[in-house]
Design a protein around this nucleic acid. Structure first.
Length: 585
RNA sequence: GGGUACUUAGCUCAGUGGAUAGAGCAACCGCCUUCUAAGCGGUCGGUCACAGGUUCGAACCCUGUAGUACCCGCCA
């Protein structure tokens, strides 16, 4: 547990000073989990790195260091191995007591943050008047998982949905609707959102080829942005409708967001320009107001501008993003701002962050980071499309996952001659299907592109959601069979570690808090997935080797605690990924 | 042309300075009178794109080369 590594680190730091003098104060003892269980639990690699500095052989350094260390309360005697590694093996009694403490903790031994910070996670961000599509999948799933991990830590998390609810698309759309479907401008739900999307595409086409239409659209935007009541009402209608459609998907995914779209920052945009002017960063170029960037150049090697006010006086997304940064710092009091968008926007954010920094808008101690992720690709390695070449609607994608998982389940029920209620089948298929989609996405290193495959994510074996859900179900099976109430196993339970698989499982369980701490720092949910997958594997190995219910009383109790801890860890870990568990499947 | 990211087993991917580079899938071989075999064990499989450099130690850091993807002045 964290407490363990922190304790060891402290001991090593003192031993370094005791052995080699005050010069070594502040040297990192390089304590890491061992690369191989045969080396124990942790290893220190500090001796090798000090060889040159101290002018001694690494093994001799390790020897000197060990003499100043007394860890006999929690560790077996330290061992020096290879070129000078110091291997640390925790005592069995220590592991057992740590497990008992974990068992008695409602947070499984994971401490809450001591100084909670206001953190903003900006994710999902679909566009009004368009449907959510596969492009929104990763931001939504990854952003939610990151928010959940930080919330579990006790951070004060604000989940913001920066929806595209402003801008030129509305001018086009309103102009087009005036022509073909005027009732949609004044009546709620006169159109299906799907139709709206089709209209949007046609409007865009008209916009691109018809100058007269273009001009009308621009005027519509101006009308809207200048607060014309009629335009505003139409805009409101379109937004409401889209919002309800988004909510269907968020409900299906069990994701909570606070909507604060681009329009929210509208009243703040002029101030951004004025303040940039004040700082002296603002330059007028070809009629547009911009800030010239450092480290970004065009074809000719000249500095690239970030345009914050177009030559027609309009603002663009850079302006909105700058206004949002200011608002989030000044009003929301954010100390950490996390933007979960695709890697293609890396440039844009680097530029906007640079301007905000140079303008002095990001105070000391405020962190602002872009969390990029790669494309979702089809099995052909190209951007994921439907067979007809269209963008894949998120709704269709999720429905298909559920339909497929239901088909799998029904086949299985038939094979095993099991009979289950419609409610059970529907619920199980939904959890399995949605979990599979989420887990497949999260288990991948987010920075790389990822190949979407229903067959792989729904596979019952391997690093998939169903495999882990099954491990959880197995534990619930023990509970049912033995009529065990895991919540009331009793107090003062003794844990006895004897078998290899018990030790492996126990050691893994005790790494939970390190894992969560790491994910909260590097914001890589795939590490948590890896941890949970390995936990499931280690549990299945234990389950295979160690009978639980038939064991004699003291062993049985101890193994029941291991089962309970595994189940609770899986449930917690999966919940941080936005994935629910099942009692049976 | 510039920028950013990527290139690891047949396939999909982990592994952001430590010991013999790992997992899943696929293929093959075993294990159900015993808590759900949706499981477990085993075999096979690698010039970590290539070439230099830094380091006691490099898949990982630096430089260069090749390939792939994405981005590059008034869309978001």
């Amino acid at each position: 547990m964290n407490a363990t590594i922190a304790y060891l680190k402290n001991c090593f730091e003192q031993a370094l000073i005791a052995a080699f003098g005050n010069d070594l104060a502040g040297v990192d003892p390089v304590l890491v989990p061992t690369s191989n269980p045969q080396f124990g639990d942790y290893q220190s690699n500090v001796s090798m790195s000090l060889a040159k500095r101290l002018g001694k052989a690494p093994r001799a350094i390790a020897q000197d260091l060990i003499q100043k260390l007394d860890l006999s309360d929690i560790c077996e005697p330290l061992e020096i191995a290879g070129p000078g590694f110091i291997n640390i093996k925790l005592k069995t009694e220590y592991l057992q007591s740590q497990l008992a403490a974990m068992q008695g903790s409602s947070r499984l031994g994971v401490e809450a943050a001591k100084n909670p910070k206001r953190v903003i996670v900006d994710f999902s961000s679909p566009n009004i008047a368009k449907e959510m599509h596969v492009g929104h999948l990763r931001s939504t799933i990854i952003g939610d998982a990151i928010a959940r991990v930080l919330e579990f830590q006790g951070q004060d998390v604000l989940r913001l949905n920066h929806v595209g609810d402003w801008g030129t698309q509305f001018g086009m759309l309103i102009t087009y609707l005036q022509e073909v479907c005027p009732e949609a401008l004044t009546t709620a739900d006169a159109l299906d959102l799907g139709d709206l999307v089709a209209f949007y595409k046609k409007a865009k086409q008209r916009f691109d080829e018809d100058p007269e239409f273009q001009e009308k659209s621009r005027q519509e935007v101006v009308k809207l942005q200048s607060g014309n009541p009629e335009s505003h009402r139409t805009w409101q209608l379109l937004c409401d409708q889209s919002r309800r459609e988004f909510q269907v998907i968020y409900d299906l995914l069990d994701i909570c967001l606070t909507e604060r779209g681009e329009s929210f920052y509208n009243p703040l945009l002029q101030q951004v320009i004025d303040d940039l002017e004040q700082t002296g960063l603002l330059v007028e170029d070809q009629g547009a107001k911009c800030v010239f960037l450092e480290g970004f150049t065009n074809r000719e090697g000249e500095p690239l501008p970030l345009i914050v006010q177009k030559s027609d006086g309009g603002y663009n997304y850079a302006t909105t993003d700058l206004a949002a940064i200011r608002y989030r710092i000044q009003t929301d009091q954010a100390k950490r701002m996390i933007y979960v968008t695709d890697a293609g926007q890396a440039n844009h954010f680097a530029q906007v962050f640079q301007v905000a920094r140079r303008a002095g808008w990001i105070p000391e101690g405020v962190e602002i980071i872009h969390i990029p992720f790669g494309l979702v690709q089809g099995e052909d390695g190209k951007r994921l499309k439907t067979r007809s070449g269209d963008t894949v609607r998120l709704r269709d994608l999720l429905d298909e996952a559920i339909v497929r998982s239901r088909a799998d389940l029904e086949t299985r029920l038939k094979e095993e001659d099991r009979h289950e209620s419609e409610e059970f089948i529907a619920h199980t298929s939904q959890i399995v299907g949605i979990s599979a989609v989420k887990y497949a996405d999260l288990s991948q290193n987010r920075t790389s592109n990822y190949i979407f495959s229903f067959d792989k994510m729904l596979a019952l074996q391997g690093n998939t959601a169903p495999y882990m859900l099954y491990a959880y179900v197995r534990i619930q099976g023990i509970s049912r069979k033995g009529q065990i109430d895991f919540d009331n196993l009793g107090s003062d339970l003794k844990i006895l570690l004897q078998e290899e698989t018990e030790f492996a499982l126990a050691r893994h369980l005790l790494q939970l808090d390190e894992m969560i701490d790491q994910v909260s720092q590097d914001l890589m949910p795939n590490r948590l997935c890896q941890y949970l997958f390995e936990l499931s594997q280690k549990f299945n190995q234990f389950y295979d080797r160690c009978p639980v219910l038939q064991a004699e009383t003291s062993v049985r109790t101890s193994r029941l605690v291991l089962c309970d801890l595994t189940a609770r860890t899986l449930k917690l870990g999966l919940s941080l990924l936005g994935i629910g568990v099942l009692e049976r499947m």
